[in-house]
Design a protein around this nucleic acid. Structure first.
Lengths: 258, 258
DNA sequence: GTAGATTGTGGAAGATTTTGCAAGATTTTT
DNA sequence: AAAAATCTTGCAAAATCTTCCACAATCTAC
């Protein structure tokens, strides 16, 4: 085995494992610890990975597995179901605004076949489509809000203010009869601009958001056309929402896994 | 079997295998190790493949700077060195515009310690900083250009037109005495806006870009304040650039890893 | 057709690179 | 602060590369 081949295999292995000890790597590529050590030094100089005491870890995590999306296990099954159900609401060739947030991210994963026009201020969503030729994805400008990967600030607000879309797919921190609320002041301005820019507004909420009030009010229920949630949502509140003329879609949990 | 036929088979075999040892290849084409060695030397000169100790590997598809992949192998060590040297040119608290392109991406990886303000239209660069609390990263808006992860179009141009920054870190497809050229019309508008927006313009070029002309002219050398390259750059051209008053930084290959 | 020149092939000797190991230095843990 | 683990450095063995040479095949000229 050539040195380069070995280093390629180390890279590959690390991409799956995120972190690996010297011993593991040595076993994986069938070479001595010393050789692996040298390979790691070379790869670090090349910038592929970062050495640590006892092993090495990848420097750039696979970009489509963004911070929250990968580690977020909270209600993942539910959010996945919501994602599928919400994506099914989109008509072909509609232009879609996509909010930031984990639930909306799951919608994005199912939407690729449906529509060619997407506008978003979420880096994870943008990354998801970065490799695709089939869609046109517009990213609003803005300042990166750390950890969430959302673009915020005047540039983002302005981008959505000047825009029009058929549908906006949104998420929020809480939902009750008074309306929808969210926790980040920076996000609220942008979300309001999104809602104004879109003809139809769809909100995605997993059942834990029902009956909750987050820090800041975002909008009243009049702004909302459709709400997508999972089957654990309280029926009472669902009925009350329907009585207000809002279409509520309850996603079944047994969709085929992607 | 003729020499040509043999080399064709070596190519074919490598296309399937990615890597191959001398011994494997000798067996595959039914010739001695010596002969395969000679064939590999010839094929390397022709640019088809790259020799390594103990074998050979396929050379990556030609479109180097414009097919973005964080793990690209082309001149990775050189680019990493350039990245370190270029990052060293940034003063604390300067605002920096960062272009798209693999070379600039390597700069980004070393710039974090400087705590500057960063503006970019490159999704990979944005991702790199998305988890960091220490810097403020502004992303220009725009349409995602697939595979590259660059934001292009009027939204991007506009964002940079309205902006000002201390430094712009740029890259391009080719560099000679006539100026700098690049291969993508969509990028050029944005790059020009970047150059206009910045007080100081730094271009990063690995040595393969020297003396080359890409499809479209981007700007003359008057626009450029500093060029950062690796130690394999042709000295003659480097001297000519210096004679024109451009600061040329040659990055040493053995910088201390971060 | 044959002698001589040219090119391609296989192999061997010496130079270079890579590999694996061990001793001493450094870092992390207890 | 001692102990364990890990890292760096230097070195010898192995593998690989380069260079050179002899031989075979092909080509050229007469």
């Amino acid at each position: 085995m050539t040195a380069e081949e070995r280093q390629k295999r180390i890279e590959l292995f690390l991409q799956k494992a995120e972190f690996a000890s010297l011993e593991e790597l040595a076993r994986e590529v069938n070479a001595s610890i010393s050789t692996v050590r040298r390979d790691l030094t070379a790869l670090e100089a090349a910038g592929t990975l970062k050495r640590t005491h006892g092993g090495a870890r990848l420097v750039a995590p696979a970009s489509d597995e963004f911070l929250f999306s990968a580690r977020d296990t909270q209600q993942r099954v539910e959010k996945e179901a919501i994602g599928r159900a919400c994506a099914a609401l989109i008509q072909p060739n509609q232009s879609v605004i996509m909010d930031a947030g984990t639930t909306v991210y799951h919608v994005a994963r199912h939407i690729e076949d449906k529509t060619p026009h997407i506008v978003t201020n979420s880096l994870p969503v943008a990354n998801l489509f970065a490799g695709s030729h089939r869609l046109e994805v517009v990213v609003s400008g803005g300042v990166i809000y750390p950890r969430l990967g959302v673009l915020v600030g005047p540039l983002a607000v302005e981008a959505f203010t000047k825009m029009h879309a058929d549908v906006a797919i949104m998420s929020g921190g809480g939902l009750d009869l008074d309306g929808i609320s969210n926790s980040h002041g920076l996000l609220i301005d942008i979300q309001r601009a999104m809602i104004k820019a879109a003809q139809k507004v769809i909100f995605c909420f997993d059942h834990t958001k029902f009956g909750r009030k987050s820090v800041l009010p975002l909008c009243s229920l009049d702004c909302v056309d459709t709400i997508v949630t999972d089957s654990a949502a309280p029926t009472e509140l669902v009925e009350q929402l329907r009585a207000k003329g809002i279409e509520v879609v309850v996603a079944p949990l047994n969709g085929s896994p992607s």
